[in-house]
Write a protein that binds this DNA or RNA. Structure first.
Length: 316
DNA sequence: AAGCTGCTCAACCGCATGGAC
DNA sequence: CGTCCATGCGGTTGAGCAGCT
C-alpha cells in the first residue's frame, strides 16, 4: 500500500485551470511568494490540492516561461543534455532558460525522440551498406582509434556549441523575445504602434480547452485585473512597474538554482531582495558541463558517444 | 459530413528526497 | 535514529485537436 494520493480529499477540483483560478493563484503568489504550497489552497480558497497549485505555477504561470517554438539551438542542447544526463528533465531545464522541465520532457517525447530514432535507423542502414562495401583489410582496432579521434574533435565542437548556446541564452537579457511578453489578450482596436493594453478575458470568452494555449501567461493580466477589481490603489503603470520588479525579466529569472531548487530562487524574487543578478545564481558552469562531458567520455558513455554534434546537426 | 487515427501537451500520480522534530 | 511532512521529479494519462479516409 502506497501513500494515499494527496488530492483524495472530497471537493478537490481536477482538470484544466480556469482564468479565475489562475488569477487567484498568481495574486496570492505575488503577495506571499511561491512556496508553502500546503497553505495555498486554504489561504486562497482554491479547490485545488497544493501539488496542483505548485505545478500550475511552475509549469505555466511562472514569469519568464517561453512556450513552444523550440529553436534548433534548443533542440541541440536538449539532445546533447539528454544524452549526457539521461531523463533528468529538471537538470536539463536548468541549462535551458525559460523552459520548464515538463515542457522539455514533452518536447523530447513527442518530437526529438522520434526524430532521433528515425535518424538512427537511417544511419544504421547506411552503416550496414558501408560495412558490406568496405574492404575487410582494416582491423577493428584501427577503426576504433580513428573513431575515437574523430569523436574527440566532435566533443570539442560540442563544447564550443554548448558555450555558444549558453552565451546566446545569457545575451537574451538585453534582447528579450520571450513569448510571455506578448500580451495574452490585447484590444482588437489597439493601434499596432502602441503598447497593447492588457485586457482581462472578455466575459464568456473562456474556453477550457483553448485557454491554456491562448493565454501565454496569466501573470500579465494581474496588474490590470487588480486595478479593475479595485484591489490595488496603484496606477496601471505603477502596478506594472511593481509587478515587473517582482517578476523580473525572463532570463534573469530563468536559471534555476542548480536545477532543482526553484523555490529558493523564486522566493528570493518575491521577498524584495535586490533584483537578481544572473551571476548570483548557481548556474551550472561551462567548466562543469565540460567536466561532465569529459567524464562521460572517459567512462565511454554510449548514449553520448552515439550522438555527436555533427550527428545532431544532420537532424536539422 | 462523419468516423477514425495519431499527435500534442497540460495535468495527474506516485515515488524520492530532504528537512524538521 | 526514526517518523512525519512538504516539496521535487519523472512517468503516464487523457482531452482536445488536426489530418486523413
Amino acid at each position: 500500500m502506497g501513500r494515499p494520493p494527496c488530492c483524495d480529499s472530497i471537493g478537490v477540483k481536477k482538470g484544466p485551470w480556469t482564468p479565475e483560478e489562475d488569477i487567484i493563484l498568481v495574486s496570492y503568489i505575488q503577495q506571499h511568494g511561491p512556496g508553502n504550497w500546503r497553505s495555498v489552497p486554504t489561504s486562497t480558497g482554491l479547490l485545488r490540492c497544493s501539488k496542483s497549485c505548485r505545478l500550475r505555477w511552475t509549469n505555466y504561470l511562472r514569469p519568464g516561461i517561453k512556450r513552444g517554438n523550440f529553436t534548433e539551438q534548443e533542440d541541440k542542447m536538449i539532445i546533447h543534455l539528454q544524452a549526457l544526463l539521461g531523463n533528468r528533465w529538471a537538470a536539463i531545464a536548468s541549462y535551458l532558460p525559460q523552459r520548464t522541465d515538463n515542457d522539455i520532457k514533452n518536447y523530447w517525447n513527442t518530437h526529438l525522440k522520434k526524430r532521433l530514432h528515425n535518424y538512427r535507423s537511417n544511419s544504421d542502414q547506411e552503416n550496414h551498406h558501408h560495412q558490406q562495401g568496405a574492404s575487410t583489410s582494416s582491423s577493428s582496432s584501427e577503426t576504433i582509434t580513428i573513431a575515437k579521434g574523430q569523436w574527440e574533435r566532435k566533443l570539442q565542437t560540442d563544447i564550443n556549441m554548448a558555450k555558444q548556446a549558453l552565451s546566446e541564452a545569457l545575451s537574451l537579457d538585453t534582447k528579450p523575445t520571450t513569448s510571455w511578453q506578448q500580451p495574452p489578450y490585447t484590444s482588437p482596436t489597439a493601434p499596432i504602434d502602441h503598447q497593447p493594453e492588457l485586457l482581462p478575458p472578455p466575459p464568456g470568452i473562456f474556453n477550457p480547452s483553448s485557454y491554456a494555449l491562448s493565454s501565454e501567461n496569466i501573470a500579465r493580466l494581474l496588474p490590470n485585473w487588480l486595478k479593475n477589481s479595485g484591489k490595488s490603489s496603484q496606477t496601471s503603470s505603477e502596478s506594472i512597474g511593481t509587478f515587473n520588479q517582482q517578476f523580473p525579466s525572463p532570463t534573469s529569472e530563468g536559471f534555476k538554482n542548480n536545477g532543482n531548487s526553484e523555490v529558493s530562487e523564486t522566493t528570493s524574487l518575491f521577498q524584495g531582495e535586490s533584483k537578481p543578478n544572473i551571476g548570483e545564481y548557481q548556474i551550472p558552469s561551462l567548466s562543469f558541463l565540460e567536466k561532465c562531458l569529459f567524464d562521460d567520455a572517459a567512462q565511454g558513455d554510449e548514449g553520448f558517444m552515439d550522438m555527436s554534434l555533427e550527428e545532431s546537426d544532420s537532424l536539422f
